[in-house]
Amino acid sequence: MLIELWNRLRWMASQKVKELTGNFSTAADCNMDCKTCCLIDCDKGHYYTAGNCLECPVGFYCPGGRAAPRKCPVGTANQLTAQADIMACQACPDGYMSSETRAGCLLCPDGYSCDQHSGLWKSCNPGQYSPEGELECRVCPQGYVCPDGRNRQHCSAGQEPDPNYTHCVTCALGSLSTKETPGCQPCPAGHFCPDGFTAPPCPAGSFKPGEQFCKSSDSSCLSDAAKELQEESLSSNTELEI
Results as ranks from 00 to 15, higher is better:
201 P>F: 10
72 C>H: 00
135 L>F: 12
25 S>T: 04
220 S>W: 07
150 R>V: 04
108 C>V: 01
165 Y>S: 15
130 S>G: 06
127 G>R: 03
172 A>P: 02
139 V>R: 10
122 K>W: 08
10 R>D: 09
213 F>G: 01
148 D>T: 01
142 Q>L: 13
239 E>R: 14
188 P>D: 15
164 N>T: 13
86 I>V: 14
220 S>Y: 05
186 P>F: 07
145 V>Y: 04
148 D>F: 00
82 A>L: 03
183 G>S: 15
176 L>H: 12
16 K>S: 12
164 N>G: 11
217 S>T: 10
209 P>F: 01
11 W>F: 09
182 P>W: 07
98 S>Q: 01
64 G>P: 02
160 E>T: 13
138 R>L: 12
199 A>W: 05
8 R>L: 13
183 G>Q: 15
8 R>W: 09
35 K>S: 15
180 E>L: 10
236 S>H: 12
146 C>H: 03
6 W>R: 10
72 C>A: 04
29 D>V: 00
115 D>W: 03
9 L>W: 08
111 G>K: 01
154 H>S: 12
219 S>G: 08
209 P>C: 02
134 E>I: 01
106 L>I: 03
206 S>Q: 04
174 G>E: 04
73 P>W: 02
21 T>V: 03
207 F>L: 12
33 D>V: 02
195 D>G: 04
142 Q>K: 11
203 P>W: 03
225 A>D: 10
120 L>D: 15
93 P>G: 03
56 C>F: 00
222 L>C: 09
79 Q>L: 06
183 G>Y: 08
200 P>G: 09
63 P>T: 03
141 P>G: 05
229 L>I: 10
134 E>W: 10
178 T>L: 09
92 C>R: 05
45 G>V: 00
116 Q>L: 08
42 C>H: 05
67 A>R: 09
26 T>A: 14
72 C>Q: 01
211 E>N: 12
56 C>H: 00
210 G>A: 07
91 A>N: 09
196 G>S: 05
40 I>Q: 02
115 D>N: 15
154 H>Y: 03
226 A>H: 07
130 S>D: 07
62 C>M: 07
139 V>C: 06
32 M>I: 13
190 G>A: 09
170 T>K: 07
78 N>C: 14
122 K>G: 09
115 D>E: 14
55 E>G: 11
110 D>E: 13
151 N>G: 01
76 T>K: 08
198 T>R: 12
142 Q>H: 11
158 G>N: 06
186 P>L: 13
154 H>I: 04
23 N>G: 08
13 A>I: 06
137 C>H: 04
220 S>N: 15
